[in-house]
């Protein structure tokens, strides 16, 4: 790392380009490389927990925490982890952070923990996290990895939030548990599994139509 400079040694132009790099590093996870709608990763949890906005935000936070933790640790250890055993090491790192989230949520947010159920331990096999560890954090410096994790986590949470909003309002007439309409005939199917599949399918189609 001989080429590494102190922050004060950067010229203003370099600083500006670095800042711009961080910004695109963050926003790419939201639109261009959105983990769910663009890269088709981590679909199981998105489909399953998007029945209520509350659950969606809880899941998004849990996911972002694990992503952040594993990206930081993998990035710090990227020179020490032998290439051949990197996948098992990543799994242990991700598994540890998943266990932390599981125990913390169980203690401080038991209602959400119960609603999310099996999908909290299943964060460990969520393809988004291992894909980011392998494709990004294992090669990049810590600051870039942090920004990547935040961007990806935010992109994931945003999709979850949008799907949950659509499903909760149409299927139950509520938003995060608050009743929105005085008289409303809920479209029950939206709260059931078929509603999740159809919503995400249509959302994906809309996104593609916009991109064209």
């Amino acid at each position: 790392m001989s080429s590494k400079k102190l922050l004060s040694e950067f010229t203003p132009l370099e600083m500006a380009s670095r800042k711009a790099g961080f910004l695109t590093g963050f926003t790419k996870g939201i639109i261009k490389e959105n983990p769910v709608l663009g890269l088709m990763l981590g679909l199981c949890s998105v489909l399953a927990v998007s029945t209520e906005v509350k659950n969606a935000i809880g899941m998004g936070c849990a996911m972002t925490f694990v992503l952040l933790g594993s990206n930081i640790l993998v990035s710090l250890l990227r020179k020490t982890i032998p290439q051949k055993v990197r996948i098992p090491v990543f799994l242990i790192v991700i598994g540890s952070f998943t266990t932390i989230v599981d125990l913390v949520m169980n203690a401080y947010a038991p209602a959400i923990h119960k609603n999310l159920g099996i999908f909290i331990p299943l964060i460990v096999v969520n393809c988004i996290i291992i894909a980011r560890a392998e494709a990004f954090a294992a090669k990049k410096q810590i600051l870039e990895s942090v920004i990547d994790a935040l961007g990806m986590g935010f992109g994931y949470t945003l999709v979850l939030f949008v799907i949950a909003t659509i499903r909760e309002i149409s299927g139950n007439g509520t938003f995060s548990g608050v009743k929105l309409f005085a008289e409303f005939n809920p479209v029950l199917v939206m709260m059931l599994p078929p509603g999740a599949f159809i919503t995400i399918g249509l959302l994906m189609a809309v996104l593609r139509a916009i991109k064209k």
Binding site: P193, F197, I198
Partner: peptide, 16 residues
């Protein structure tokens, strides 16, 4: 816009 995955999801919904 529906080609590929989007239509697959909608079909999965109908099967569900």
């Amino acid at each position: 816009p529906l080609e590929g995955e989007p239509i697959a999801f909608i079909i999965a919904g109908l099967i569900a």
